[in-house]
């Protein structure tokens, strides 16, 4: 993956998570993967198209998703959730949108132009994701509610 793309995603994930959860965020070692990867339980996927093509996935366990959504809702003086209902999914969607949106804005400033698709949420047991012909950058983020893996697979359009 092009070096210039890495930092905007890492920085915006860090900033947005710290802001919406109002807590410390720890970034793990970045690494690359290209085989099929297990999905932890809840995944929000945002597609990218333009100078590049690919997608960004935010992957976490169901438990972490509920805790993060609750923390975000409580910060807005709303009721926390106990199961992953429509409100919970919408909240995770919003989180994915905020992080990807901020990263793409930074990339626009650097001269790379591309558009986003609305996030889609997948949830279930024993899921895997694989991307033909693209290697994925994994950015692990630790927050008090659990671990979020940000999985960025994008390539230059030839």
């Amino acid at each position: 993956m092009r070096v210039e793309y890495i930092n905007p995603f890492v920085e915006s994930a860090y900033n947005v998570l710290r802001e919406v959860l109002n807590s410390d965020v720890n970034r793990g070692e970045l690494f690359l993967k290209s085989t099929a990867m297990p999905v932890l339980g809840v995944a929000a996927i945002v597609g990218l198209a333009g100078d590049v093509e690919g997608r960004v996935m935010f992957d976490m366990t169901r438990d972490t998703a509920i805790k993060i959504a609750s923390a975000m809702l409580e910060a807005m003086d709303m009721e926390p959730i106990s199961t992953l209902n429509d409100m919970g999914r919408a909240t995770i969607n919003e989180l994915a949108n905020m992080i990807t949106g901020q990263a793409v804005t930074k990339l626009h400033e650097l001269g790379f132009k591309f558009d986003l698709t609305p996030p889609a949420i997948l949830s279930g047991e024993n899921m895997e994701i694989s991307d033909a012909g693209v290697e994925a950058l994994i950015v692990p983020m630790e927050v008090p509610q659990g671990k979020i893996e940000i999985n960025v697979a994008i390539r230059e359009r030839n």
């Binding site: 993956m1 070096v3 690359l32 290209s34 230059e156 030839n158």
Partner: peptide
């Protein structure tokens, strides 16, 4: 030049 964070063991985008 396009500098990429890339592992040679993985798929590459070079046409």
């Amino acid at each position: 030049i396009l500098f990429e964070y890339h592992d040679i063991r993985h798929e590459s985008g070079v046409p």
